[in-house]
């Protein structure tokens, strides 16, 4: 028996919007730790890891570890039917081949049940080693989204370089090239508007903008994004989910042949 009640049901709606274009089918794992997902895109270039900790749910019952295979587009369709202020409960019986999403309006005057078929998905859980990053950039998530969108109208790849000067996002394409430099800026009143750069070593890596743009669909989940870079390692683009956990996107770099 599994029953997870999330008062902020719109978090789950936002999570689905953030991952459904990157990953088609995925197993959601439920354990005493929380509700999680790890999945790669079909080209095995990017990986998404989601964790919603059990403490973040108003009610969390998970009698045994379960893995539920879901088509993310279908799940998103169902969650779109929940109101933004609705309380969402995820329910599944042991051994059942369906999952039920229950939506309750805040004043309890409307209750809806949406039952979705589960699927068998063969997926490998990859071991993600702990890494020391050469540079960690924390910036407003809307700013990062804007940069990725702007640069993708010029080129297909982005070079992210971190030096003492700041973080530089560069692209080049047939019509020309573009560079956006963001400097550390902690003087603004609101911490969510600041940019901080923690650099141990300068680093410069190239990534496909198509994936970066896909990651920015998680922007509504968090006002800030953390970009962790190390040469020869996938970049980690992390959006913290307040009081609940995180969504992390890992993207393999492009390298010179």
């Amino acid at each position: 028996m599994l029953e997870l009640r999330l008062v902020q049901g719109n978090l789950l709606k936002k999570v689905l919007e953030a991952v459904k274009d990157l990953v088609t089918d995925a197993n959601f794992d439920c354990s005493s730790t929380g509700f999680s997902l790890q999945a790669m895109d079909s080209s095995h270039v990017a990986l998404v890891a989601l964790l919603l900790r059990s403490e973040g749910f108003e009610h969390y019952r998970c009698d045994r570890n379960v893995s539920m295979g879901m088509n993310l587009n279908n799940m998103a369709k169902m969650l779109k039917c929940a109101g933004n202020d609705d309380i969402v409960t995820i329910k599944a019986d042991d051994g059942s081949d369906t999952v039920t999403f229950m939506f309750e309006s805040p004043n309890q005057d409307k209750i809806a049940d949406f039952e979705m078929k589960l699927m068998d998905i063969d997926s490998e859980h990859l071991g993600i080693p702990e890494a020391e990053y050469h540079a960690i950039v924390r910036m407003p998530s809307s700013e990062f989204a804007r940069i990725c969108k702007d640069l993708s109208s010029i080129g297909d790849t982005v070079v992210i370089s971190v030096t003492k000067e700041g973080v530089k996002f560069s692209t080049r394409g047939d019509i020309g090239n573009a560079n956006v430099v963001c400097r550390q800026n902690t003087t603004v009143d609101k911490p969510e508007e600041s940019t901080t750069i923690e650099m141990h070593e300068p680093v410069s890596l190239t990534f496909a903008l198509r994936y970066m743009n896909s990651f920015t669909k998680a922007t509504p989940l968090s006002s800030t994004v953390t970009i962790s870079l190390s040469s020869e390692l996938p970049v980690v683009v992390e959006y913290k989910i307040a009081e609940m956990g995180y969504i992390r996107f890992y993207l393999a770099p492009k390298i010179e042949d």
Partner: peptide
């Protein structure tokens, strides 16, 4: 020429 690395070349399969 640039080549796209796979995420599988960084993270271990179980």
């Amino acid at each position: 020429m640039q080549r796209q690395k796979s995420i599988l070349s960084f993270f271990q399969r179980p």
